[in-house]
Write a protein that binds this DNA or RNA. Sequence first.
DNA 1: CTATATTAGACAGTGCAGCTGCCCAATAGC
DNA 2: GCTATTGGGCAGCTGCACTGTCTAATATAG
Lengths: 205, 205
Amino acid sequence: MRISELSRRSGVATATIKYYLREGLLPPGRATAATQAEYGESHVRRLRLIRALIGVRGLSVSAAKDVLDAVSEYATDTHELLGLVFGVWPASGPAKDEDADDSEVGALLAQMGWKVSEHNPARDVITQTLQTLRSLGMDYDWHSLVPYAQLAEKTATLDLDQLEGPDDPLEKAERAVLLTFLLEPALLALRRLAQEAESTVRYRS
Amino acid sequence: MRISELSRRSGVATATIKYYLREGLLPPGRATAATQAEYGESHVRRLRLIRALIGVRGLSVSAAKDVLDAVSEYATDTHELLGLVFGVWPASGPAKDEDADDSEVGALLAQMGWKVSEHNPARDVITQTLQTLRSLGMDYDWHSLVPYAQLAEKTATLDLDQLEGPDDPLEKAERAVLLTFLLEPALLALRRLAQEAESTVRYRS
DNA sequence: CTATATTAGACAGTGCAGCTGCCCAATAGC
DNA sequence: GCTATTGGGCAGCTGCACTGTCTAATATAG
């Protein structure tokens, strides 16, 4: 199919498709002539994935590119893929503060018995959150996060269970990315729904 | 204190402080003369809160304003406050699709026994996520979310337990906002840490 | 085989968000 | 009185994610 049909099938404007091609998010079609290229089903699917990462999850274009590159490069090594993909955060991400004291996170990891890479940016996110909460006068340290960490552990178990299905490595890699990224807004939404329900029980009973 | 000291104490540039004043995120100081105003500790604290919502959580300036307005207006009614504050999502938020079929979310809520307002935007986030996952070929419906919802319920219980402390309504309101918004990136970070730890156990043992 | 439409590719331009710099008149403090 | 700082307003800047336009080459209908 040509670009106009690709546009119709995916719901993405042709100018935008060209932009994604330029930015390397979408692989080029098979050129059949100087001004003609042929696109396939994989392009439709890839475009939908791009729109999901950017539109639903809110990743920047360059963050989405990092994710997609990791998928195609490490499709066969789920563990390595997840490690790479964890480096991607929406927007600027955590403003990596070299002087930050992340020993608190270390204590939390030790308590939970989690073995985690030194430079997983999630460490910095937690360090920064704890610091911010304290700077706002809350009495909060890593101990307060332990119950949340236990729930996160169960969540992660659910996540990885769902990767057991597919044998095709590329499919498995895509599913890992979808479950990690696209589920994030949904998990936060579930928390808010549960908060409202619980708030009704406590304050409106 | 005057604006330059407020800038020094909060780490926010004076031009930016003026911008927040214009946008109504920060209440004006007490004017002592035509070109002089007096700021207090509450301004330092408020500025830190603004930076946390925008910089750490990634809210837009106008979304942060909505949150802050809700805090000062409904400080005495925690339930009402939470309801208002749930309307705030980072960036564009869910692209409210009127035609979307949210009966799936209804089924999920019924199953969980959650009573939730009709127009909580979290509903749309979940509807959209499910639709997107299916459009990408995953076999996913509300049943798949039930285990996550059960964990979200426990999370919400932890959250609301931490509101039991303060008697001062304003303090309670602020804490509700901090726990809901600032903890969101941290919870996602915990999930990613747990995913990496679990992935190590499963694929590198 | 001509006339009209479409396309790939390059690049400039647009719209918006979040600041940032600059100017001015009015103090503050010495 | 004199110099430095301030409040307030507004224009301008930067980065991002597109979007529109142009050109030459090609497809396709008549």
